[in-house]
């Protein structure tokens, strides 16, 4: 083992990672169900993370040198691994309970207006709610509300839905010059606000839409045009003078309804794209189409994308055929 590699065990799976890696990134290298959900951490944004507390995990063994467990649950996105560290995520009931608590707390002031929210279908909070949330809310008070704010003519801020992950703040901070932050007020009435408006003259301001884990920042050119699961994502690129030009086009029939950056399996953009690509170029002729975007078959977007399997009756009755088509058949009953 070289000097800058350390071993960490997460939910019983050991992985060797670079020294200084966070627990979350070590888990991402393993992949699968043991990856803690991250609502505020964004690997492309420096300083992000630690705020939403959904990625909390239990460190049951600190390191080889100091095997004491950490006294509290820690935010995996900001805690770096130590050699010999043992972490429990989904194997610890304590973690799951605390995470369910965080999800409940994130939702108490969320308007739950998914039926009219453009983010529905690709919303991290929705996914989190399905996985960890309760069926019913225990919160019986009026939810906090804000006025909607138009940030320029392309972006709308819907503060009611915001979970204050600060991702857009870091995006605006790190892609534009001369700003420090964009959060006003304190406590549960703090809001992403005015300072961010000053970032809109920047070519990359549209990326705040992509980094937003919820529907708080939406694309005004796409607002209420369509539900995401009715649109088909296609990877495309163009020679753009300001950015890499690598995007995903979202088609409905022959029309490009929306352009976003390409996202990886953890929902993070691969490369930030410029506003011209995002808002101005919405014709197929502007783009070189590469291939249909690969969408996880558990995503609601995949559900409507490609032909759903309509199995012949014989497959359902014949034992052998049913066994052979098991995976496909599961999909037909899943949703």
């Amino acid at each position: 083992m070289s000097d800058n590699k350390v071993k960490v065990t997460i939910d019983g799976i050991t992985v060797e990672v670079e020294n200084g890696t966070t627990i979350l990134n070590a888990a991402r290298q393993i992949g699968g169900d043991i990856v803690p959900p991250a609502m505020c951490y964004y690997s492309k944004l420096k300083g992000s993370g630690g705020k939403c507390r959904t990625c909390i995990v239990k460190v049951s063994k600190g390191s080889e040198k100091d095997p004491r467990p950490m006294p509290k649950l820690v935010a995996s996105c900001r805690t770096t691994v130590m050699d010999g560290m043992e972490v429990q995520n989904i194997t610890s009931p304590e973690v799951l309970e605390a995470r369910a608590g965080v999800v409940e707390i994130l939702l108490i002031n969320h308007p739950l207006d998914c039926p009219v929210c453009d983010q529905a279908g690709e919303c991290d909070l929705q996914d989190l709610g399905y996985e960890h949330g309760l069926q019913k809310t225990r919160y019986e008070f009026e939810r906090r509300t804000f006025e909607r704010i138009d940030i320029g003519d392309k972006i709308q801020l819907h503060m009611n839905r915001c979970i204050l992950c600060y991702r857009c703040v870091y995006t605006a901070d790190q892609l534009t010059d001369g700003r420090v932050h964009g959060v006003l007020n304190r406590g549960d009435h703090s809001e992403i606000s005015t300072y961010i408006e000053q970032a809109i003259d920047n070519d990359f301001s549209g990326n705040v839409i992509d980094v937003c884990p919820v529907g708080a920042l939406t694309d005004r050119t796409f607002r209420f045009k369509n539900r995401v699961w009715f649109t088909k994502p296609v990877d495309a690129h163009r020679d753009c003078p300001t950015c890499s030009g690598k995007v995903t086009l979202w088609y409905k029939g022959p029309d490009v309804l929306r352009v976003t950056a390409r996202k990886d399996q953890f929902g993070e953009v691969e490369e930030f794209i410029c506003n011209t690509c995002r808002f101005e170029t919405k014709n197929t002729s502007d783009w070189t189409i590469i291939e249909p975007t690969k969408i996880s078959d558990t995503s609601v977007i995949a559900a409507n994308h490609y032909e759903t399997l309509r199995p012949l009756p014989v497959i359902k009755t014949n034992e052998q055929l049913r066994e052979a088509n098991k995976k496909e058949l599961e999909k037909t009953i899943k949703y």
């Binding site: 630690g50 705020k51 939403c52 507390r53 608590g101 965080v102 707390i105 994130l106 108490i108 002031n109 919160y139 008070f141 906090r144 979970i163 204050l164 600060y166 959060v183 007020n185 304190r186 406590g187 549960d188 009435h189 703090s190």
Partner: peptide, 14 residues
Amino acid sequence: SCGQCSPCREGTGW
């Protein structure tokens, strides 16, 4: 509450 992390921001109000 400063409103930075969610449990305190939302929980104290609750």
